[in-house]
Amino acid sequence: MGTQDQKRTILIVEDEKALLEILKTNLEESGFKVLTTTNGVEGLEALKKHQVDLVLLDLLMPLMSGFDVLEEMGKKKIAVPVIVLSNLGQQEDVNKIKASGAKEYLIKSDTPISVVVEKIKSQF
């Protein structure tokens, strides 16, 4: 994998454009290379094409949800760490995500963006 001075690549899968852009801005300013996709299908394609170090995954999206992305990744044995970023706070959602092997589950409206960036940094 990459060396210390090589930029880490983060794949953001998020259908809400405003959130996608501000995440991209903050992550790029923190020194990451950012790939953006707006649904699960695009996200999985990007994972095939690019070398990705971490996926920042939304749950409720058109075409393919974050749950399905996690399932596909499991089936295809794509071992890229995932941080789920969603506004679904129901316990059963949290359990489902934890069972699928995601590293973190963050509630968007409760988590400052600085914390999101910190959590991503702490994965490396």
Partner: peptide, 8 residues
């Protein structure tokens, strides 16, 4: 969702 956008 809009609140997250405003916050961030």
């Amino acid at each position: 969702t809009p609140l997250s956008a405003i916050n961030w």
